[in-house]
Amino acid sequence: MSTPGPGGPSASDPADPRLTHPGERHDAGHAGKLNWLRAGVLGANDGILSQAGLLVGVASATANTSAILTAAVAGLTAGAASMAAGEYVSVSSQRDAERELIAKEARELAEDPDIELAELTAIYRRKGLSEQTAAQVAVELTENDALSAHLDAELHIDPDELTSPVAAAVASAISFVVGSAIPTLAIILSSTSWHIAAVVIAVLVALVTTGYLSARLTDAPRGRAIARLVLFGIVTMGITYLIGRVFDTTVG
């Protein structure tokens, strides 16, 4: 049997964080960071694809650099504002709903704590605990923090981890700007004859990178994630290129 180290748990202690598999983290803070990273990658992908589609469409219709750059700035600005507004409204609605659920649960605990305790016990019974163990767990959690226990078990809400609508909106806008900057810079740094090719190359490289990162964050198959993004990128740019050719206003 292993023995505890100085001032620390034994190697056989189930609470010892050293027992997690290498590279694994199980704390709520880490899960929250992963969610933000995933959201950032998705926002960047939106920026890459929407801006690339816009610029390829415009560049296929006109060789006028001023017109292309105007479209680039407008697309980046409008896209970032739209993403921020959409995220703010969405998260605000979710946060309002969560606050209402928290208030409702608090009222129910104050009005009929016995029924709520029985309800919490039943939840742990359904998770596979024996009647005695489920009752003991419910009682101990209730004595420690009844509201948090019910919010976690019933609603999967942490009242201390509610997402900030402002933070979500800012993060969404920034990730969109970062993504859309890639095809924008490709246009700015390339000659007129290379505008479309430069955007396509830059976007495909960016999509491969973000596809790899998103797959790594979610432990999904990387090849499939990359292939999906690249396919959508090619289709998006192909469609907008054809639209641009239909409305061709190229300046000679």
Rank of each mutant, 00 (worst) to 15 (best):
L101V: 14
G128H: 07
V166K: 06
H30A: 13
R107S: 08
L207F: 06
A74C: 09
G79E: 03
V177Q: 00
Y124F: 14
Y241M: 11
A15H: 15
D13P: 13
A39E: 11
T77W: 00
S10R: 09
L242V: 15
T133P: 00
T70M: 01
V177C: 06
G32M: 04
S2Q: 12
A81Y: 01
A74S: 13
I201C: 13
S10F: 13
V73H: 01
L147Q: 05
A198F: 08
A138C: 02
L42S: 08
P6D: 13
G223K: 08
A28S: 10
S148V: 12
D152I: 10
G79Q: 05
A153T: 10
P14V: 15
T77L: 15
A197N: 09
I182K: 02
R25M: 14
A63F: 03
A186W: 01
E116I: 14
E161Y: 07
N45K: 06
Y124N: 03
A171D: 01
L109D: 04
V137P: 00
A71M: 07
L19S: 15
G40A: 10
V205K: 08
G233S: 07
L34I: 15
H195R: 13
A72H: 03
D219T: 14
V203D: 15
T70K: 00
R95I: 02
F232M: 14
H156Y: 08
Q51L: 11
Y124T: 05
L189T: 12
S164A: 11
A171I: 01
L129H: 10
H150M: 07
R125I: 13
L231N: 04
A168Y: 00
T249G: 05
V166Q: 05
A11S: 08
T65H: 11
V139A: 12
I239K: 02
G79D: 03
V137S: 09
A85W: 04
R18E: 15
S164P: 01
G252E: 09
E154S: 04
G233E: 04
T62Y: 06
P14K: 10
A197K: 08
A220R: 09
S60Q: 14
E154W: 02
I226W: 06
D13C: 15
A198K: 09
A167C: 00
V91H: 10
S193F: 11
H156D: 14
A52F: 07
A84V: 06
L147V: 10
V200P: 00
D96H: 06
V166C: 03
I226L: 07
V235C: 04
L147G: 04
A85K: 01
G32C: 02
